[in-house]
Design a protein around this nucleic acid. Structure first.
Lengths: 142, 142
DNA sequence: CTCAGTGCAAAAGCTTTGCATAATA
DNA sequence: TATTATGCAAAGCTTTTGCACTGAG
């Protein structure tokens, strides 16, 4: 219960600090993304959100996601090239393993950018701001 | 000169083995992707190809890319969620570092999937068929 | 009260598909 | 000659944009 409230308050504060507004639509979108464990695309967010806020429009979802991403509250992922997926920005660096058989997405934490900076010469003088590792294959069941 | 011929012959043979045809359009597309060092999207391939084959259509580019990808001759990358980028499938596992300032793409080899399989528990019993690491940030100049 | 945000509808990319024609094996 | 591939045009999806209205601060 605590984390839910604090996500909401954090969001309100960060939005406010940038002169942006904390609307019920944005609260709902954040809430859904958090519950979705980071693997929802815009349309799924939209469909879930409409259950509670039937007049919400898809463009609001897109615009909110964009703003939240700009503020660093949400990350945009690219599992495939067809649509974006979103997740509440995780505290630690984490990555995704996708099963091509059953579609499940496994997350794992790993400070990969630190590792790469240390081991890859061409990454040495790069200031890495974003890292996305996507691995796909088949899980033990498939 | 040798490698050029052998890419062409390899392509012809692999297509043939699957009952597919080696057309001048496909030869040209492969050639362009190879020269493009792996960072062209479909439209860029199309524009370059039309210089030599003005009647080529964009749908042929897409269809060919799809077939070539299916045969494992070409890899599809997702730098952003808006379009696909293509590269001739590299022999060794390699990844991409993208500068958000000047747009340059730095490639580096690294057997990352082996590393991850070894260090990440949840990846242990996964058969990884594809790995894509995308890191972005700012290069030393930007 | 003011400016950011919303809903709706229309437009804008990128990618795919249907169909008749051309070209490979 | 039998299919596979191509070109063209049209359709499909996801995402973005314009505009008048609403609502948060």
């Amino acid at each position: 219960m605590k984390s839910k409230t604090s996500l909401k308050e954090d969001t309100r504060q960060i939005l406010g600090a940038s002169g942006l507004r904390f609307t019920k639509q944005r609260a709902l979108i954040m809430e859904i993304i958090r519950r979705g464990q980071g693997h929802l695309d815009a349309d799924e967010v939209y469909r879930q959100a409409r259950k509670r806020e039937p007049r919400l429009s898809l463009s609001t979802v897109y615009r909110s996601l964009q703003k939240l991403k700009g503020l660093g509250l949400v990350d945009e992922l690219h599992f495939d090239g067809n649509h974006h997926h979103y997740e509440v920005k995780p505290a630690s660096e984490h990555h995704h393993l996708i099963c091509l058989g059953c579609g499940q997405v496994i997350e794992f934490d790993y400070p990969l950018s630190r590792y790469v900076k240390r081991h890859v010469p061409s990454a040495k003088d790069f200031e890495i701001t974003e890292t996305e590792l996507r691995m796909s294959g088949y899980c033990s069941k498939c």
